[in-house]
């Protein structure tokens, strides 16, 4: 078992080079630059089993145990007990697991936790109910069962960052990645417009 201390000092008994190679240069660069994640080692082998990584979630560094196959969604839900992001579809087609990573909306069930090392991740739990998007959702009653709502709130938050002055037409065109079975769309549209009127991202 690798301890967090070992990981922090780059003394783990394995390498994540194979993983890094497969997961894109940006992640590798962050990790190698001594970012908060796992330090890379010279020798090449495949990671297996449990290992501890550090995720930058809601402005804090969190150590979390993952397997290479652990998705970001599982790491958040089981590792950090941040259960706002929901498991709804096998892929990203419901938008229910949406978080904001590097400023962009991401289906957390479609990325591996290890890919997210060194990237700032924002989850719905970082928001409070008395302002911004969640407040507008409450005010317009834009949740019923509420299971889709955290994903929607994050999708809207990311959308409004890009389109702070969104029109109703843009809202109807731009928020189709999220699914709601209870049918809250008619309440979400005015909620998003309220946030726009209140000054973009509230």
């Amino acid at each position: 078992m690798t301890t967090p201390e070992q990981l922090a000092h780059g003394k783990s008994g394995f390498s994540r080079r194979a993983f890094l190679k497969g997961s894109g240069a940006a992640a590798a660069a962050t990790a190698m630059a001594g970012g908060p994640g796992l330090a890379a080692e010279e020798e090449s082998s495949v990671i297996s089993g449990m290992t501890t990584i550090t995720l930058d979630v809601n402005g804090k560094q969190h150590k979390v145990e993952v397997e290479p196959r652990t998705t970001l969604l599982e790491a958040l839900r089981y590792g950090l007990n941040l259960t706002g992001a929901k498991p709804i579809s096998v892929d990203g087609s419901s938008g229910g697991s949406t978080v904001i990573m590097d400023g962009k909306p991401v289906s957390s069930n479609s990325v591996l936790a290890m890919e997210c090392v060194g990237k700032p991740i924002q989850t719905v739990e970082s928001l409070t109910g008395d302002s911004g998007v969640p407040h507008a959702f409450v005010d317009q009653d834009a949740s019923q069962c509420g299971f889709c709502t955290p994903g929607f709130v994050m999708a809207v938050t990311a959308f409004l960052k890009k389109h702070p002055n969104a029109t109703e037409e843009q809202i109807r065109d731009g928020l189709n990645g999220n699914l709601c079975r209870c049918g809250t769309y008619a309440n979400i549209i005015p909620a998003v417009l309220d946030v726009v009127k209140g000054g973009g991202n509230g």
Partner: peptide, 21 residues
């Protein structure tokens, strides 16, 4: 009236059976 559990639903703190660990 706003739903009294609206803020919990809209900030992800509402715990569903799926969320209980």
């Amino acid at each position: 009236f706003d739903k009294i559990d609206g803020p919990a639903k809209c900030t992800g703190t509402a715990k569903y059976s799926y969320d209980i660990n």
